[in-house]
Structures are given as structure tokens and as C-alpha cells.
């Protein structure tokens, strides 16, 4: 299954791009509306980009009243990304979304690098949300956590149904003319090809300790990139930054992945998931 990384696509402004995915993941919605961070919000880096959008979103009430019905009308499989600043906030949004049959699953954004994070541990947030909804909960973890496998085990124990690996990691760019940070809030989240080895490591380490399904994401530009995330242990793949340059990426990567699977003797993505964990052939 190919999804978009949360915050990398607006299905309402690009419905045909979203329709080329197996499932659309919304931009993170928080309890209260957020205008987001002041510009400048993005900066290109040599092998990626930084963003400091700051969870711009209309807030859960407006989202449920306006955005969600419009998204539901598109007829897409739909995951909603949920954010907050305390376990109670996450849980309250999950409880509201629980009433919407159009929403297939909830992704808990536990790792946005551009806002002050909830103080509670990822596991405590997952536990609170678990009590608030029966929908599948996917925990999106940060690669900045050195013991990401430990986090994976903890959120699994708290009731997560899947892992989304990984979010962006904090970075900084300095402007060549001003010698000051390019982004208005100085740091931002690094995405793009630079993230791929970090994503592969996170997926690989989490697969070792957990059998939860994993959405692998980070620097996917080609079918080979997607295949490698599967090999590391992902069961699904999401595309993010590459969508900005190539709105046709979902269909192209899907076709390239199929070729890559067949080249390696597989018929389906499921067969390739985790093959990097097999002992090396003599």
C-alpha cells in the first residue's frame, strides 16, 4: 500500500494526486486552529529540504465541520493525522473522529519537530487514545529518539496497531547572503533523500522488536527506495517530499516497485517485507 506522508499533500487542492494513492493521510489536525509558523517556512538543502510549517491547520472542530466532509466526498480511503500538546488533547480528538466511519485509521503525530511537544511519553499518549477510540492507531515516531525500538515496544504495549516511521528530523540552514538561519524560526524538519538511511535504520530496528505493521517513509523517490523500506521491514510505504517535485510520483513509484519486486522474485509487497533480516546467503 502506498500512502502520502502527512503534511505533504492536500487532497482538496490535488484530488487526482490523492486518488493515485491507496490511502490519503491528512495534514495533522490539532484541537485548536493554528496559523502555523511565520515565513520563511521552507529551505532547500543539498540532499533534502527543511520545513517549518508549524502544524498549520483549522483545528478539530472546523476540520470536522468543513474539511472532513469534503475529503469524505472524494471517496478516498482516509487516515487522519492527530496532533496535540497533551495526552488528553490527542484523546479528545480521537474520540471525536471515532464517530466518522469514513475515517479508516488515525495516525498519532508524536514527533513534529516544529512545535513544542507534549511532555508525556509517546506510550502515555497512545494509551489515552486507545481508551478513546476503536479505530486503528498508528504511532508516528521520531528518528531523533536514539532508542526508537524501545519506543516501538512501548507504544505497542500501550495499544498501537501500527508504526509510522519516520517523521522529519531537526535541521538548520544558513543563508549564504545574510549568514543567518533561512527559516524564520531557525530550525525545521529535514526531509527528502537525506532521510532515507535514517528511515531504513528506524524501520529495521523496530521490525526486530515488533511485529506491528509499519508504514516506512523518508526519502522515497523511486520504486527501489520503496522496495528497500519493505526489505527493512515496512509493510506499507509513504511518499513525501518527492510529491512536491513530482505530483505523478505515486503512480510512477507503484510501477517501479512492481518491476523491482518481480526482479527480486516476488509477486507482492508482503512477500518482500522484512527480507533484509534474513541471514546473508553463503
Amino acid at each position: 500500500m502506498i500512502l502520502n506522508a502527512s503534511g505533504c499533500l492536500d487532497a482538496l487542492t490535488a484530488p487526482n494526486v490523492a486518488a493515485a494513492l491507496d490511502c490519503f493521510v491528512t495534514k495533522t489536525v490539532t484541537p485548536l486552529p493554528r496559523g502555523g509558523n511565520p515565513p520563511t517556512r521552507i529551505a532547500e538543502t543539498p540532499v533534502g529540504m527543511l520545513n517549518s510549517i508549524g502544524l498549520a491547520n483549522p483545528g478539530i472542530d472546523e476540520f470536522l465541520r468543513v474539511n472532513l466532509p469534503e475529503l469524505a466526498a472524494l471517496g478516498l480511503r482516509l487516515w487522519v493525522s492527530v496532533g496535540g500538546f497533551s495526552a488528553e488533547e490527542y484523546a479528545a480528538s480521537c474520540a471525536l473522529l471515532d464517530a466518522w466511519p469514513e475515517v479508516e485509521a488515525l495516525e498519532l503525530n508524536l514527533s513534529c519537530p516544529n512545535v513544542e511537544e507534549a511532555a508525556e511519553s509517546a506510550a502515555a499518549i497512545v494509551a489515552a487514545c486507545r481508551a478513546a477510540t476503536t479505530k486503528p492507531l498508528w504511532a508516528k515516531l521520531s528518528p531523533a529518539n536514539w532508542d526508537i525500538a524501545g519506543s516501538a515496544r512501548a507504544v505497542e504495549a500501550a495499544g498501537a496497531d501500527g508504526l509510522s516511521l519516520i517523521n522529519t528530523i531537526r535541521g538548520l540552514a544558513i543563508d549564504a547572503r545574510t549568514n543567518r538561519p533561512v527559516l524564520s524560526l531557525a530550525t525545521g524538519g529535514l526531509s527528502g533523500p537525506a532521510l532515507k538511511p535514517i528511515a531504513l535504520a528506524a524501520v529495521f530496528q523496530c521490525r526486530r522488536v515488533s511485529q506491528l505493521p509499519i508504514v516506512g517513509m523518508g526519502g522515497v523517490r523511486t520504486g527501489r527506495d520503496a522496495f528497500e523500506l519493505l526489505a527493512a521491514g515496512a509493510t506499507h510505504v509513504a511518499v513525501g517530499t518527492t510529491l512536491f517535485a513530482d505530483p505523478g510520483a505515486p503512480g510512477r513509484i507503484r510501477a517501479e516497485l512492481q518491476v523491482e519486486l518481480e526482479r527480486n522474485g516476488f509477486t507482492t509487497s508482503a512477500e518482500a517485507s522484512g527480507i533484509a533480516h534474513a541471514p546473508a546467503r553463503a
Binding site: D10, L12, V17, G35, P39, N51, A56, L243, F244, A245
Partner: peptide
């Protein structure tokens, strides 16, 4: 003009203040 990653409403990078709110310049 504003720095923008995508040009079609996906990235929210090109937000500028329009009518007192941050909105996407590309849209």
C-alpha cells in the same frame, strides 16, 4: 512571490499573510 516547494497547495511553504491570515500564495 514566496519560496515554494510544490506550487500546487501541498507543502504550505509559501504561506503569506492575506486578509490577516496566513494563506498559501500558490492557491
Amino acid at each position: 512571490e514566496a519560496p515554494m516547494a510544490c506550487g500546487y497547495g501541498a507543502c504550505y511553504g509559501c504561506a503569506v499573510e492575506i486578509d490577516g491570515e496566513l494563506k498559501r500564495l500558490c492557491i
